[in-house]
Nucleic acid binder design. Structure first.
Length: 326
DNA sequence: CCAGACGTTGTT
DNA sequence: GTCTGG
DNA sequence: CCAGACGTTGTT
DNA sequence: GTCTGG
């Protein structure tokens, strides 16, 4: 599932962080998406460690949706509300009564709510530093579930939760595939809103939750997902596959309350001590089996495996934005 | 033809 | 229990 | 996703 | 608005 995200960059910095190789002709140059602020009933984007449904956050879309003769390969950032308001909805924007913060990929193509937007090319990419996931538990109340912050592996030295260790130009933001819609009220005011596409989790995350967002893990996939004139809906769907290019750490339950916007929200906490009984059993079992360390599978896979860190090298994507400077 | 749904989650 | 707000 | 409300009256 | 169920 995906019910809370984190994005703390200013609009300008989000633009910098979303630099992509674009432009026409053979010589692709690095360009930044432009910031396109819509009225959205007066709702605006506020950088936050704790973004919840109904909040507004920036998403990438093709410029061609807005410019008459726009290049569908060009990207723009548009603040939109999380949770689609169906374009046919009558009344206040918040009275449709449907849960639309996520769209199950399995249901997309026979959904009355999402299919039209999708076939219409209204694809978007939700941008964030990471998202929060509550571990599915049988016994605990929802308020007692373990919470994790999930994000892209960063280059050496960058700690995503410590903004003093990185700059917008070098951070690797998490990008999720979504669908957006445009709603107009009786007065003719428009509201842009989006949903995050989800599917069944792969092994990397299924121990935590059975659903995960459709993460786009390369610049090419992002460009293809957004360019609705070049890539058909059918081909766009093929881009959505579970990724292993993610990592995570446990965070405090401060994030449970969406009013808590503290930067502590995405800070790692020490793993909760297991019950003494289980801990003792584990220790003696480890001694018997002569192991020094439990393997990933043996300890519930609750910490990310190594070897997911990207190599620090200058690729076409990164040329022009070097690593830590100064 | 009209009426009614249109969505997702977790948990008892 | 269920819906709305953040 | 979780938290918090869930209601009405008359009067400062 | 559009689709399904009756």
């Amino acid at each position: 599932m995906c019910g809370r995200t984190c994005l703390t960059l200013s609009p300008d910095d989000v633009c910098r962080a979303c630099q992509y190789s674009g432009g026409s002709g053979g010589a692709k140059k690095k360009v930044q998406p432009t910031w396109r602020s819509e009225y959205n009933l007066g709702k605006t984007y506020n950088p936050s460690y704790n973004i919840a449904p109904t909040d507004v956050s920036p998403v990438l879309v093709s410029e061609a949706h807005f410019e008459e003769e726009g290049d569908s390969g060009k990207q723009v950032l548009v603040p939109m509300m999380w949770g689609i308001v169906p374009f046919w909805h009558k009344g206040e924007h918040n009275t449709h009564g449907l849960t639309t913060n996520n769209c199950r990929l399995e249901n997309l193509m026979n959904s009355k709510l999402y299919k039209r937007s999708f076939m219409n090319g209204q694809r978007c990419v939700i941008v964030c530093e990471g998202f929060y996931e509550w571990k599915t538990t049988q016994k605990a109340k929802s308020s007692e579930r373990d919470v994790f912050f999930i994000y892209r592996p960063q280059v050496d030295g960058v700690k995503i939760e410590d903004k003093s260790t990185w700059k917008p130009e070098e951070v690797d933001l998490l990008k999720m595939a979504g669908i957006y819609d445009v709603w107009t009220n009786e007065s003719g005011d428009t509201l842009y809103s989006y949903t995050v596409i989800t599917f069944q989790s792969n092994k990397t995350l299924s121990w935590m939750h059975d659903r995960m967002p459709a993460i786009l893990d390369s610049q090419e996939k992002i460009a293809d997902w957004l360019d609705y004139k070049r890539i058909s809906p059918e081909d766009a769907l093929k881009l959505l596959k579970p990724t292993d290019s993610i990592t995570w750490h446990q965070v405090s339950r401060l994030v449970n309350n969406s009013r808590n916007k503290s930067e502590e929200c995405n800070n790692p906490i020490k793993r909760e001590t297991k019950s003494p009984i289980k801990s003792k059993m584990m220790q003696s079992w480890l001694q018997k089996s002569g192991k020094t360390k439990p393997t990933r599978d043996e300890e519930d896979a609750e910490s990310p495996v190594e070897a997911k860190k990207p190599k620090l090298e200058v690729t076409d994507e990164e040329a022009g934005s070097s690593g830590p400077s100064e």
